[in-house]
Design a protein around this nucleic acid. Structure first.
Length: 839
RNA sequence: GGGUGAUUGGCUCAGUUGGUUAGAGCAUCUGCCUUACAAGCAGAGGGUCAUAGGUUCGAGUCCUAUAUCACCCACCA
């Protein structure tokens, strides 16, 4: 028998291993229709956070629901090597032991990374198990395994041959700490305090100068021109003349270019083509030399003269002092401006001229946009508004820089010999070739995840059966990093969308609405929450607390009240189990009104819950099922069932209803439902997770009994309110106009009923069919009178409003007829109540 | 500069294609240890749905402005 209190630790113990050992999570029953999800692979950098718990719980709910509905479900798990993030962690770890990455060498460093990966993969596995995820671990993949490597090479070579991957010299975002290129998406802009340094650029052979404002004076060593707008009256005559580059002393031309905005600053811009993307473009237009002045590690190089070797920020400081001494500094204007920082290392990103590999996005992006116009083949976002994020991004995207100067990742399949370049799956024949040292952006491999994990480019059974997948679940923050890229790669290489639906959830915030982050220290470890409240409570809370796509403010109080809900379920189950021990079979026959009432409510709930499950509206599932369990089943039905608990009809109804409740809750609360299901004396499967989901049955709707019990519940509630509001003690007497035992028993009226009227204070309780007059010796206080008058007032106003409405010809003619009818009935009832009150 | 979302009782949120008196949970107040559950039961109070217009017989819901907040993208010499 169940304990008196729900104890998640007891309930969850060993249960996951049991499921796992029975192979319940594995797919492959080809007699069923397939249904598939691939997990968004978590980075092997650390532990899972609450966002992962939310994301994976949603997927588990979907997959368990579909499994119970009779689908052959594949939920494919895996982890992401997370190139730069992991490399940064491993480098930091080695540094603690005074080991340098470069001294260690590529092979040994990669060994360290694999070791790191194994350790963290184990942690992730344990955490997935604690969350109760029904992933098929026999299909687990890794973004750096051999299969993915094959797919990555195939895609790279193919895109190269189609001309969609190219190598070029461009300004990219350079991370001087990790010493690698970054894509635009890996750069986070932050507002920081900086300054405009106003400098004098003297005109050649002149006492006059141009005032140039810059935020990055240290780049002046790379200046190869200053630009003014050709339409700017102040300067247009100077175009073609030269200025003297401060400190350096060499002559650079004044050019006219639209890039210079006359409205901004002094209207004069220094042009540094090797260190600014706009200047780079200007440089192309005017054929300017590109001078790199900064080393990959962020120190100045030999082009910076005496500052050679100084860090870029130290150089700035020193240079400004020198400029001031030389009288070339006009002023320093403090400003707040946004500056790009590396997402992973948080250092200021350096715009940097370098030779990198790029994906030409034009054709691929257009394919996505075209496909979204086709209702049959598009990716359907839930909620739909998130489609705009993808469309916006795809219609305005730059080429994707995919090479990274790292070791941890898929090495670029390109080989060089002098000026020759060879791109291929296998190394070229012959002597003297050396492979590109760089690896690919981690998203390049994750973009292939939904199909490469199923064996593509080989024609595997897995791929044939489960691809395209049915739904992808992810947060809105990575729609463009990942969802877009999976979509264009999938369309390009499989001619299919990667998933039919994309279910988008929000971000987890703390109670104050701030993002959870390490720096704020407001992060919450999901495992701590599981320890305290259980995985079931955490899953249910996370997945049912907000509308789809909305952010979630994490509130431990709410998690606690979810525990209460489970405890309620636990105790209701306990009551049922205590009273049905003798049952031999579930027979829904000779049902009484209450039995029929709860079966009706149950079926309506099944219908509503199934509908919401199909639409991924889990918050609405909660709204429906919570009320059903707590109010209908516990507060009303169980209380009524106590009067007929010895009858087989009621025992059957109790067991049947509880079974359906457990099944509906199972996708959300796998542990506790499994634990209770084990105790049921009669069940339809060896385990609840492979039992069948409840199905709506029209035959179990009993309209007459439903209305009758609804009215009885109404009556009981009104009755209790009257007793309570009027401070009526239990020694009152009552005269009733009905013979309804259920009411008498629920209200314990038996010994209070009298046949005749009494000449003392009376209180009337009535609904359509039931009326009771309560006799109780009591002074009518002013308070009582006031409340009666208040009610009379309310009724009179309401009647007036309703009469106006019904006298309005427009309403009567245009509104639906049943609505008008209802209004009429309501009006009648109110009038009756008013007359009764006034008497 | 472009875009998205939010604004509903003290707090956190629901609210389907417009249609009875706008719903929950938590918190508050009152009374109960009634043998499934006091982490519970039985009741109660509390909202001019951000503001101003408009469409409509009827608006929390649709339209147009405005305000405040949050987020995303781009730019920032």
């Amino acid at each position: 028998m169940l304990d008196k209190k729900y104890n998640p630790k007891e309930v969850e113990k060993d249960r996951y291993n049991n499921w796992f050992n029975h192979h319940y999570f594995e797919c492959g029953d080809t007699s069923k229709k397939p249904y598939s999800i691939v997990i968004p692979p978590p980075n092997v950098t650390g532990k899972l956070h609450l966002g992962h718990a939310w994301d994976t719980a949603l997927q588990d709910i979907i997959i368990r629901f579909k499994r119970m509905q009779g689908y052959d479900c594949l939920w494919l798990p895996g982890v992401d090597h997370a190139a730069i993030a992991t490399e940064a962690k491993v480098v930091a770890k080695l540094k603690k032991n005074n080991i340098d990455k470069y001294e260690l060498g590529r092979d040994k460093f990669l060994n360290e990374c694999f070791k790191w990966t194994d350790e963290h993969k184990n942690i992730i596995h344990e955490q997935w198990a604690k969350l109760g995820l029904s992933i098929d671990l026999t299909k687990e993949r890794f973004t750096l395994d051999d299969g993915l490597a094959k797919a990555v090479k195939y895609v790279f070579v193919d895109l190269y041959n189609k001309g969609l991957i190219y190598r070029g010299e461009k300004i990219i975002n350079w991370d001087p700490l990790a010493q690698t290129a970054l894509s635009n998406e890996e750069v986070i802009y932050k507002d920081v305090e900086g300054a405009f340094y106003h400098l004098k650029y003297y005109l050649e052979n002149s006492e006059e100068y141009l005032e140039v404002a810059t935020t990055r004076p240290e780049t002046l060593f790379g200046d190869t021109a200053v630009a003014v707008n050709p339409s700017d009256e102040r300067y247009k005559d100077l175009i073609g003349k030269n200025v003297i580059l401060p400190i350096v002393g060499k002559l650079i031309p004044i050019i006219g270019d639209e890039h210079a905005d006359p409205e901004f600053g002094t209207g004069v811009v220094k042009i540094t083509p090797a260190h600014d993307p706009n200047d780079f473009e200007v440089g192309l237009r005017h054929d300017l030399e590109r001078i790199i002045v900064i080393n990959p590690d962020g120190t100045m190089n030999e082009n910076a003269g005496k500052y050679n070797g100084q860090d870029r920020f130290l150089c700035r400081e020193n240079l400004i002092k020198d400029l001031e001494k030389a009288g070339l500094l006009i002023k320093i204007e403090k400003i707040i401006h946004s500056v790009g920082h590396s997402e992973r290392t948080d250092v200021m990103v350096e715009p940097y001229l370098s030779l990198q590999w790029f994906v030409d996005m034009q054709h691929l992006a257009k394919q996505v946009l075209d496909n979204q116009k086709n209702k049959e083949t598009k990716v359907n976002f839930v909620p739909t508004r998130f489609e705009k994020i993808m469309n916006n991004w795809m219609s305005d995207c730059h080429d994707w820089c995919i090479s990274r100067q790292l070791w941890w990742g898929h090495r670029i399949p390109a080989w060089y010999k002098n000026d020759e370049v060879y791109v291929g799956i296998n190394p070229p024949e012959g002597e003297g070739w050396h492979q590109d040292e760089d690896v690919l952006d981690t998203w390049f491999s994750s973009a292939l995840w939904p199909f490469a994990t199923m064996g593509w480019p080989d024609k595997t059974d897995l791929y044939a059966r489960y691809f395209p997948t049915n739904v992808l679940v992810t947060g809105y923050d990575i729609i463009f990093f990942w969802v877009c890229r999976m979509t264009f790669q999938s369309l390009e290489f499989t001619k299919n969308r990667p998933f039919e639906y994309c279910l988008v959830h929000g971000l987890i915030r703390d109670k104050e609405g701030r993002k959870m982050s390490k720096s704020l220290g407001n992060g919450i470890d999901p495992m701590d929450m599981i320890d305290e409240y259980g995985a079931d409570a955490l899953r249910y809370y996370l997945t049912t607390s907000t509308a789809p796509g909305a952010d979630l403010r994490f509130d431990e109080e709410k998690l606690k009240s979810t525990w209460n809900f489970i405890n309620k379920l636990w105790n209701a189950s306990r009551f049922v189990l205590m009273n049905i021990e003798s049952i031999k079979e579930i027979k829904l026959e000779n049902l009484n009104a209450a039995d029929k009432w709860i079966l009706t409510k149950l079926n309506k709930t099944i219908k509503e819950v199934t509908k919401c499950m199909e639409k991924f509206e889990f918050n609405n599932v909660n709204a429906s099922i919570y009320t059903f369990i707590w109010n209908d089943f516990c507060d009303n039905y169980i209380e009524m069932a106590k009067f007929s608990i010895d009858e087989n009809n009621t025992k059957s109804t109790l067991l049947y209803t509880l079974t359906c409740i457990l099944k509906m809750l199972h996708p959300f609360m796998p542990y506790v439902t499994d634990a209770i299901y084990e105790y049921l004396p009669i069940k339809d499967a060896e385990n609840i997770m492979i039992s069948s989901y409840p199905v709506f049955d029209k035959k179990q709707l009993f309209k007459e009994e439903e209305e009758k019990i609804n009215e009885i519940i109404d009556f009981i509630k009104n009755y209790r309110t009257v007793i309570k509001e009027n401070n009526i003690a239990s020694n009152y007497q009552v005269k009733i106009n009905f013979k309804e035992n259920l009411i008498n028993k629920m209200l314990k009226l038996e010994d209070k009923i009298i046949a005749n009227e009494l000449d003392i204070t009376k209180f009337k309780v009535s609904t359509k069919n039931y009326e009771a007059i309560i006799y109780y010796e009591k002074e009518i206080t002013e308070e009582d009178l006031a409340s009666i008058n208040k009610r009379i007032n309310e009724l009179e106003q309401s009647i007036l409003k309703r009469e106006n409405l019904l006298n309005n010809a427009n309403f009567v003619n245009k509104a639906p007829k049943d609505l008008v009818e209802k209004e009429k009935i309501k009006l009648q009832e109110e009038k009756e109540e008013l007359t009764k009150l006034k008497s």
